[in-house]
Design a protein around this nucleic acid. Sequence first.
DNA 1: GCGGGTTCTGGGAGCGCTCCCAGACGGGGA
DNA 2: TCCCCGTCTGGGAGCGCTCCCAGAACCCGC
Lengths: 340, 340
Amino acid sequence: MTEGRSRRPGPRIEEVARVAGVSKSTVSRVINGEKYVSERSRQAVHRAIAMLGYSPNHAARTLAGSKANAIALVISEQGSQVLADPFFAGILRGVHAELTGRHVQLLLMMNQPLDGEDQVAYLTGGHVDGALVVSLHGEDPLPRILHETGLPVVSGGRPLAGGAVPFVDADNFNGALGAVRHLISLGREKIATIAGPHDMAVGMDRLSGWRCGLAEHGMPVGLVAHSSDFTPESGAFAMEDLLRRAPDLDAVFVAADILAVGALRVLHARGYRIPHDVAVVGFDDSVLASTATPPLTTVRQDVEQLGRTMTWRLLAELAGEEKLPSSMLLPTSLVRRASA
Amino acid sequence: MTEGRSRRPGPRIEEVARVAGVSKSTVSRVINGEKYVSERSRQAVHRAIAMLGYSPNHAARTLAGSKANAIALVISEQGSQVLADPFFAGILRGVHAELTGRHVQLLLMMNQPLDGEDQVAYLTGGHVDGALVVSLHGEDPLPRILHETGLPVVSGGRPLAGGAVPFVDADNFNGALGAVRHLISLGREKIATIAGPHDMAVGMDRLSGWRCGLAEHGMPVGLVAHSSDFTPESGAFAMEDLLRRAPDLDAVFVAADILAVGALRVLHARGYRIPHDVAVVGFDDSVLASTATPPLTTVRQDVEQLGRTMTWRLLAELAGEEKLPSSMLLPTSLVRRASA
DNA sequence: GCGGGTTCTGGGAGCGCTCCCAGACGGGGA
DNA sequence: TCCCCGTCTGGGAGCGCTCCCAGAACCCGC
């Protein structure tokens, strides 16, 4: 704003080159970590950069280069916002943490249901080098579509309609398995579950873990009630269903804390004491778990770590690393509180 | 990736110009909504853009132009993540919604306590045209510092150390006032409050509202307990303090749902029936309010709207609009549930 | 009729980088 | 000895736009 055509402040690559006594080509090579630069030049450039406080211009790099220096974080949120919120914030924190220091910008996209093709066009249009897709709804075709265009993609959560899309997810199966084993170790003998919706991978995997845990002790796996979405109301509804079918159940593994809140409400209303009559284990270790009455024993998943790992995986692919694992599961852990 | 030097796909401004039968200067004018373009040219350009599916290259615009075409969303989170999460997600959703369609990118920054000056340097270094700052901690100097460098800034929440920084906030004062009036209308006569920490504006404003509501009915305003942070434990601690000082209180206005959860726990434990013995009103209308036992009457603030409004205000300033209000308060509303 | 505006237009420099090319230098193997 | 290849370097074109400039076309009042 000072002269006619206001230039951005700060030194340019040319000044770094002058101070370091090399050409701007060499400075560029150092910045981009290319080989074929002598140790002497590299040092000189680093000193000059530090001295001048130089920071490369993102727009210029992107314009001149063959990459966008940006990745997209796409949040497909079809309803179920309640679950989405804390989850989403954790993911974002993780992604952000992993990105700091690298010269990569984060582009946020939350898709309204409508703009599916626009979004694909934008993402594959060279504005970003890759995409992180978090679809809560497991059958979302977006990860697969993007993957098929050749855009590097990492999905957060196992995509049901995923094809060969690389993904990172919490180890929902073993988390559920651990929860069930815990219930069994407490001597519970009639263990039900409130599962997630049919169309979400996270629900399916947790259900499998529950089944497996019971099966390995020769216990029956019939007491399943599916929730229609991740709300307390849906959890309450499922709990009522279970109690109708088995009034004498002594434990419930609930696929999400937010469902468990509804289930607890029903159990209280019917006069069941927790954990004396019925032990309850949730999943997620969200705020709700610690604020529930009684505080909920739950399976903790580290959402921030999930965000970090997705980002790491995508950046590694962009850097041309090979032999990357196509999928990764992150450990979960049981958090013991009062409810089981 | 197809030829030696892989170009980004899609048409360039030059092709639009050719198709429209004008020069690229004119196309540029149309895109940027400048005047001095004939209606005929404007129409032709718009047709050409639609036909070719043209979308301007962000990097090139930024490099050539005198603005960055990007704004930053800075989240200052010093602890208190619990409150931060849903709040944060709502803000982000609002900001994003307001940004779609405009050619402005969103840059996310979450500041670690350490990198204060780096952050200021980056923000004022021409990478962004303006900043939205959400500091939960009211005495954060960042909004003021940025504002003083001349960077357009809008703060989310009234900054305590704000100077003349424009801000958008929920009308915490009137929200609290309404809550107290509601309690009084229920016939409550000994109304306490659990206030937020001293150093956060949101806490102070809600406390003032409570005071005012009591004062206008000539009721005493002594029953205040400050929480140290926004956690259920802190709420429980404050509730215990209040009960020690006034075992016969019949209502509590709690400055945040998450504090109310802790307060409810203590009240239950002491055998108080809610709302029969003690009516409780929270603030925020977060998930916690509906999952609490009993479901919490609370003051709803529209966090997404807050994000939208902040963004609108910043963009208006960037567009050179004058006579903008320096601060704006958004309405709150009382959500009645079982607790009061 | 002429000067002085306002409205509209195209040409082209240049934003700050990357990446291609051409070339300099050195250390082997033939 | 010569040549080739691997290492290192600088020069400079050009990425796709914006914005300045110069000028054309047209209106107005005198």
